[in-house]
Amino acid sequence: MNTTEQVQKHYEYLLAEIYSWMSGDFETRVNQTKEFFIKHNITPAAEISAAVDLGSGHGIQSAALAALGFKVTAVDFNDRLLNELKKNCPHVVNIINSDITGYDFSNVSPEVVVCMGDTISHLDSFEDIKKLTGSIFRNLKPGGKLVLSFRDLTNELKGTQRFINVKSDDSKILTCFLEYFNEYVNVTDILHYKVNGKFVMKLSSYRKLKISAAAIISELKSNGFNNIIQEQISGMHYIISEKTK
């Protein structure tokens, strides 16, 4: 089973049903994302400007882009999350159920493409990242921007540091455990949730690629992207790059 298939099964079995809970208040997250886009001049350049949200989840990035005036296409492989997105983002124009590597850009010439929330680390290999960023560059409008976000897992945690408390409340506790290999990290999500007043445990594992900001920036430059900006927010690396005119 490849990484993409593992991730799909992981979301179907465990993560999709708690994704909105794990992400926090939707409107707050949308406003934070909208402010981030405005800060980096990611706003429509024309009356009709297309944006593509790869790995859209339940719609945080899509909603922020739509609020800024973009005509948004949201792409994700999970039905449950896409159904939540439809409710959360009634102004998103196109909603497509697809693996992000299978999305066909030929029907749209986007001004902005975003692939955020660690989605890019769900690909099978760095070669797949190269293919994806190359396809995005070819299909972006001149002056268009690509926004990526991901966690750099190249620095190995040791011992009990590998157990991470993701989120908890009175009814749910989500912990993850990290196992490090040469090119990827195996992530096991451990969910405890209450049934009839008693906690029940649910487990599921999937792989994430070990990718560094330096490697991503180097690849973006080799594709022709310029004006690259990098920043780190709450442990996530954000990289904004531009297809200069």
Rank of each mutant, 00 (worst) to 15 (best):
T28R: 06
F37M: 11
A50V: 13
D124E: 11
M22V: 07
T244V: 10
T160I: 13
K210P: 00
H58M: 12
I229A: 08
S20I: 05
V147N: 05
Y19M: 02
V113K: 00
I239E: 00
K194N: 03
V147I: 14
M236K: 08
N155F: 13
N226L: 12
K9G: 00
Y238F: 15
E179C: 00
I216K: 03
F77M: 10
F37G: 06
T28W: 05
W21I: 13
L54Q: 08
I217F: 12
R29E: 15
K208F: 11
F177C: 04
R151D: 08
V200T: 04
E5N: 09
S109Y: 07
F181H: 08
R162L: 04
L203K: 07
G24F: 01
N226W: 05
E35L: 09
V108Q: 09
E27T: 14
V200R: 05
G117C: 03
E179D: 07
N227R: 14
I48T: 14
N165M: 12
M201V: 15
K86H: 06
G224H: 01
Q8V: 09
P44I: 06
S234N: 15
L54N: 12
S121V: 15
L209A: 02
K86N: 07
I190C: 06
V72F: 01
A215S: 14
A51Y: 01
G117W: 02
K245S: 06
A46S: 15
S205V: 00
R29I: 05
A213I: 13
R207Q: 11
V52K: 05
Y193P: 01
I60V: 14
T73F: 01
G117L: 02
S234F: 15
S98W: 12
L191F: 12
S20C: 04
L81H: 03
K245T: 08
N107D: 13
Q8T: 12
L209M: 07
S98L: 13
K210C: 00
L68C: 13
F126R: 04
I216F: 11
V166I: 15
T4C: 01
Q32I: 08
A45H: 15
T73W: 00
I60W: 00
K87S: 02
K87N: 03
N226Y: 09
T175R: 09
K172Y: 12
Q232P: 03
F177S: 03
E5I: 05
K194D: 02
A214K: 15
S56H: 05
D53L: 06
S212G: 08
Y193Q: 09
V52G: 10
M236C: 06
L123T: 09
E27Q: 14
A213P: 07
E35F: 04
Q6D: 10
F163S: 13
F199Y: 15
L146Y: 08
Q8M: 10
P44Y: 05
D189S: 13
S20Y: 03
G134P: 01
N88G: 11
S20M: 07
D170L: 12
T188E: 06
C89R: 02
G55P: 04
T33A: 02
T175N: 13
G55L: 07
H237L: 10
